[in-house]
Amino acid sequence: MNKMAGSSMGEDTIGAIQEGIRNSAARMLESGEIDVFIGYEDGTLPLRTTPVFITCPEDAERLVWSPICENSLTCYLPKFQGTVGVVVKGCDVRTLVNLILENQVSRDKVKIVGVPCKGIIDRDRVGKALGTDRIIRSAKATRRSLMLEGDGFEVEMEIQDVLAPSCEVCRYPVPVLFDVLVGNESMARDGKDPEAGYLEVAQFAELEPDARFSFFAQEIERCIQCYACRQACPLCYCPECFVDRQSPKWISRWRGLSDKILFHLGRVLHVAGRCVDCGACRRACPVGIDLRLLTKNMEKAAKDLFDYESGLDIGGVPLLATYRREDPDDFIL
């Protein structure tokens, strides 16, 4: 019975956030502050939301909010000329801070609508918990639980049990930067200790180098080089990605494992010191490669070596665009 009470209260919180997003969008569009508002609307499939670009206040009714809103909407921002309003979660705003630091987005051209985040669900985990042979016809998410309906079944899951791995160890569920915060900070999850996030990485580093290599080789062998991870990443905005370059041709799509490894190492190096562990790459991967392990390790290295955490300080400088005289140099001959 407590659960019922909890879930109805939870619905209210989600409803309140959704209402807040709609109101902010309508208000900003009406006043002419922004040219377009980027948010989420219901997708064509259950358990999916899709990015939506709203240009007139009446359409603000289409906007939704739930723990299914997984995409990082900040990845659209470098492409816009006008002023944009955007819905961001705790992780999304850190990518936006990076985009601003890297001069890809100008701070005064973006109106940030922050959402205190409870974490989002991982569809792979939902699938595993449900059994892959069952087709979901409709899904409804509240703050605490997820109701799934299909042919001949009705299942309720705790959001907590199907949370995305990156959300489980999220440090900053409340946006660090915003113009409007919808709801209040108490609606978010509690931020986790950094050590919690690095536990998996630290445990993996205990293995023998050969074991580590074979684990990655096994994972990456499955890569089909669709580059969905790059496409989903809010921090990948190069007009021509190194994997698409023909001269020099860094990566080929038909040479097998070694080129796949090179791609993954290159990708990780390109987001080193910038990645905020939003988990978009992992969710985008069609073959389920554990892409977070490598990027998380770089995040840890940036913290250990340079005491740097990405995407927190809008007045800062990107990690690799600056230096300190006393940076570690014990690896240099």
């Binding site: 580093a205 180098p209 074991a211 340079f306 990690l319």
Partner: peptide
């Protein structure tokens, strides 16, 4: 070289984590 040092520190860390032998890649001044 200061900027390079940061990049190489991260590369060194990445290669080690990935399981590629330490000692394939060297840096010196």
């Amino acid at each position: 070289n200061y900027l390079a040092r940061r990049k190489f520190a991260l590369l060194d860390e990445l290669l080690d984590f990935y399981g590629i032998e330490k000692g394939r890649v060297h840096f010196s001044w």
